Amino acid sequence: MSTQQTISKHLDKSVIWLFVIVFLISASVFAYRYKNYKTCEDVAFTVKAKEFRVGELIKFTDNTDQAANWEWDFGDSTDVKTNKEVLHIFNKEGEYKVRLLVNNICQDEKTVTIKEKLFIIDSTKLPVFNVKSSIVVGETLNVEDKTNNASTWEWRFGETTRVNSVEKRASYVYKTPGLKTISLVVNGDVKHTTTKQINVLPIEKKEERISEITGTNRRLGDGIKARPLGYEDKDKEKTKDEPSDKPKVVPFIGDSQFISKLELVSNNKLDANAFKEYFCGDINKNIIVNGKNTSFLIFCEKIKNKKLRIKDITIYREKGSNCINTVTISQNKILGIF
């Protein structure tokens, strides 16, 4: 037998053995994977929490049959967790897509909405000041803050949207009558704002007393002239046309138009003064937003440059005048407020 034929036979056997070895290895791997394979046709997990808010503990539990391993991704850039049941805390409000990967194959996803942290008013942080019940237009109102550890002040006296004073002791002269709301913010903490009301009275007009009546003596009937035919008493006509003492009627604004104007305020296209006529001049009246008391003026300041979504609104008016007394608003939570 020649040398070339011997080499060919040897190579043929080597190739055959190589194929046999590869086949056995592949079969072993397949058998191992088949033995350890876990199905996960219906991936399902539950989410439970006392409240879905920032800082609250939330429990995630997988209920998938034949699940062997898990990978939880909470959508907030935190580390992946690998247990069947995990606890998680979200540090910011918003919507998060929580993904669960089971057995490295099957996946389920749920959206979890986290609300802002529930704010509890600390009464010890509320500004302290006193104000008298009434004052007359043109008189000087003096107020003083008595809050402990206060270093900055923002006084608003209810006639404009601007801050009227930034001193501990403030003075103000009202130019228009009406019920005004005074608000004070100290140390920049707008969540702890104290508001008080003062009734601004109009200036009383002094009546001149008649000390003496002088005149000439006339005989009865002197100077009296007969009225011509067709004469009408113009003074009587004026009396008929004169308005009675009825309350001043302000323009009526509907709920949808009110919301549209608030959206323009949130987009910085209007300010609280756009509502002045509807509030009979007092845009600093108390309103209720998501169950919390605030003033309309402060509410307009807070919603500027924020995405406003009002769910419901109720406007309470004075009978006969359309003057708005107060408003209750239900809205989606906005970052940093209410």
Rank of each mutant, 00 (worst) to 15 (best):
V186K: 01
I120A: 03
F258H: 13
F279P: 09
K81H: 10
I182K: 04
N322R: 05
I283Q: 08
F338C: 02
K9C: 07
G291K: 05
E207I: 12
I121D: 06
K319C: 06
E71A: 08
N91H: 14
Y32M: 09
I324K: 01
R162E: 09
A272L: 11
K175Y: 03
N267Q: 14
K307Y: 15
P127Q: 10
E85Q: 12
I58T: 00
Y96F: 07
K234H: 04
K168Y: 01
F296Y: 11
F30S: 08
S165C: 10
K234P: 02
T64Q: 00
T6P: 02
F296A: 14
D79C: 05
R156M: 15
V20R: 03
N130Y: 04
K248R: 09
N69H: 05
E139Y: 09
L229P: 00
D241K: 09
K205R: 15
D62M: 06
D222H: 11
R162V: 13
G75N: 15
E154H: 01
G291T: 10
F23T: 15
G223T: 08
E208M: 12
T160G: 02
T216P: 02
L270E: 08
Y37Q: 04
E242M: 08
E232A: 00
W17L: 03
K146P: 09
Y316C: 00
E237S: 12
S330E: 05
N103I: 14
I313V: 14
I120P: 01
T39R: 12
N286D: 01
P177C: 04
L184Q: 04
V166D: 08
V86Y: 13
A67Q: 06
E167R: 09
S171F: 07
E301L: 05
A170G: 04
T294Q: 07
L24W: 00
H192S: 04
S26A: 12
G215W: 07
V43W: 12
D12H: 00
L100I: 12
G55D: 05
T6R: 11
W70D: 10
I121V: 14
E41G: 01
N284Y: 01
E204P: 04
I89K: 14
T314P: 03
K35S: 08
V289K: 02
D245F: 10
N103Q: 08
K240W: 01
V80S: 13
S171N: 15
N187G: 04
I16D: 01
V265Q: 06
I121E: 08
D62T: 12
D145A: 15
F157C: 06
S8N: 05
K307C: 09
I135K: 03
D235V: 07
K333Y: 10
T140N: 10
Y34K: 13
S28Y: 14
Y32P: 03
L184M: 06
I182D: 12
V173N: 09
T3C: 05
L201K: 10
V265H: 06
T61Q: 11
E139D: 13
E167M: 00
N91F: 09
R169C: 03
E71V: 07
N293Q: 09
N268F: 07
S266M: 12
G223K: 02
E207K: 15
I287P: 03
R219C: 02
F74V: 03
Q197Y: 02
K311E: 07
L229K: 01
S211E: 13
E109H: 12
T176G: 03
A44R: 11
